[in-house]
Nucleic acid binder design. Structure first.
Length: 490
RNA sequence: GACCCCUUCGUCUAGCCCGGUCUAGGACACAGGGUUUUCAUCCCUGUAACAGGGGUUCAAAUCCCCUAGGGGUCGCCA
């Protein structure tokens, strides 16, 4: 089975495209002799960005998708970049023209626009009126002398085009609704609907898996295959199978785009998602395992995902679920791996990380709750923010104003001075306070937490205290006692 | 406007092809409870959907028709 992923290099690889790539790749990897081909569709020189092509390679590699043929590694059907295949398209275009499947059109864009508008107003379908189809050689010559450069249009036959889509099922289009589309621009470059067919044909693609925004393009492409087959012989031209996968939508049910957040592979990487998790989530959009399990390895996905079992309805992208899946994958990392993974996100904050051992302790203390890399910052903020009691909000003050809070904090300060600086040592002091003053539960722990961290919640309190160190904690308690309770201690 | 595609809990989906096993299953989210000093983790419980309307049938989420809503295409973009 030969499949291909054919993005155009116009920006970051989006989740929608990434899913298309994943599905193609999965299909190719199901069998020993399956081939995944990467082709760059860059026929529109105005929109191309060489950086984007590099970005696509990087994004695919990061996701763990490798290709068997492509612009960078070559293959038996090079070129794999459409901009380098122009002579091939021209050759096939001439063939179509010579055999009466294509004709020159000299209409200007302005003329076309005008007539299209008029057709729409009169309630006719806005398709090309074939004005240039019956031009004589002399007329064509004349137009050429006027400096007009013709485009080449495909002659759309009468009747209908039907095909069986692996996902959508039987689809029928009547060709009277299809315009004689342009296959070669006036500068001789090919258009999409023509170039894909030529490339899929020469690259012997068996199955075209792509977004269902291409569904309505498919009859045009089949028409080109038909023409090719009539010219070259039916045994030489095989129309591939098609599988049009539904789009990915944003929460507002419109097509997923940048305004929905970090929806490109690159941005997901930057936010601290694991490639396996994104791969897993994207595979789950429109598909589910018969076992109902959701955390699935690539190997299992290759085995279980069947293209014709993918839902035909569009799916809404849900960051919450991606977060959950990512968290599940994060849990599988060893402590060492987890630290390595989140470290770069901490470096970006500008915090002082020189005491690496200490920072690592902090990380491990909070790792359970982290669902993506960047989130580590939020969890560690408590350790790095300034101790500024003007930050005390009403909620925090309420805790400090509990009748017993003053005693707890004062006692804690006194006892801590000669505490053994271990978990057991600090814990023993808290227990002493509990016993001596008959204060327990949140009335015991909350005041201490607030007084030491200015937070209501956080990781294990004793661990947090140990990480701060005795000097810092005593300093903080002293400030609270002095500034808040107006108690002088030594 | 024309053509095509789509429509099950808030979200992803199972079931639909081959009507009864569906008082519609799972997961995420949410709510409640338990564990925990708190948060998180973990465990338990719960709320919640067949777009609407007609048919066919003893029986319809499942088959047929219509309507509505959403999306896509109609480019010298891909």
């Amino acid at each position: 089975m030969r499949v291909r992923f054919a993005p155009s290099p116009t920006g970051d690889l989006h989740f929608g495209n990434a899913r298309t790539a994943i599905l193609n790749w999965i299909v190719a990897r199901k069998t020993e002799d399956g081939k995944f081909i990467l082709r760059i569709e860059d026929t529109d020189k105005d929109r191309n960005d060489p950086e984007a092509e590099k970005g696509i390679y990087e994004a695919l590699k990061w996701l763990g998708i490798d290709w068997d043929e492509g612009p960078d590694i070559g293959g038996p059907f090079h070129p794999y970049r459409q901009s380098e295949s122009f002579d091939i398209y021209q050759k096939y275009a001439s063939l179509l023209k010579e055999n009466g499947f294509a004709y020159e059109c000299f209409c200007t864009e302005e003329e076309l626009e005008k007539r299209k508008k008029k057709a729409l107003e009169e309630g006719r379908p806005p398709i090309y009126d074939r004005k240039c189809l019956y031009l004589s050689e002399e007329e064509k010559q004349k137009l050429r002398e006027q400096g007009r450069k013709p485009v080449l249009r495909f002659f759309v036959r009468e009747g209908e085009v039907r095909f069986n889509d692996k996902i959508k099922g039987d689809v029928v289009f009547e060709t009277k609704n299809i315009s004689d589309f342009i296959i070669l621009r006036s500068d001789g470059s090919p258009t999409y609907n023509f170039a894909v067919v030529i490339d899929d044909f020469r690259m012997k693609i068996d199955l075209v898996i792509r977004g269902d925004d291409h569904l309505a393009n498919t009859p045009k492409q089949i028409l080109v295959y038909e023409a090719l087959s009539k010219i070259l012989g039916e045994d030489k031209v095989k129309i591939p199978e098609f599988a049009h996968i539904p789009m990915i939508l944003g929460p507002d049910r419109s097509k997923l785009s940048k305004r929905h957040g970090a929806v490109s592979v690159k941005r997901a990487k930057e936010k601290g998602y694991l490639p396996e998790a994104l791969f897993n989530y994207l595979s789950l959009l429109g598909w589910s395992s018969p076992t109902g399990e959701e955390i699935l390895s690539k190997e299992r996905l290759i085995k279980e995902v069947e293209i014709d079992r993918i839902s035909s309805a569009a799916a809404v992208f849900d960051f919450t679920k991606l977060n959950w899946i990512n968290q599940e994958y994060l849990k599988k990392l060893s402590d060492r791996e987890f630290i390595e993974f989140v470290w770069p996100f901490l470096e970006k904050t500008g915090w002082d990380l020189s005491d690496r051992k200490k920072v690592e302790k902090m990380i491990l203390l909070v790792r359970d709750g982290v669902s993506f890399g960047e989130e580590i910052v939020k969890y560690l903020e408590v350790f790095f923010k300034e101790f500024d009691i003007t930050q005390l909000n009403d909620k925090l003050k309420e805790v400090l104003d509990w009748e017993s809070s003053k005693i707890v904090i004062e006692e804690f300060y006194k006892k801590l001075k000669d505490a053994e600086w271990t978990k057991e040592g600090v814990f023993a002091k808290i227990k002493e306070i509990q016993k001596e003053n008959k204060i327990k539960g949140k009335f015991l722990y909350m005041p201490i937490r607030v007084a030491t961290t200015l937070e209501e919640h956080g990781p294990d309190l004793v661990e947090v205290i140990l990480i701060f160190g005795k000097d810092e904690i005593l300093k903080r308690l002293k400030i609270i006692l002095k500034e808040y309770y107006k108690i002088e201690v030594d």
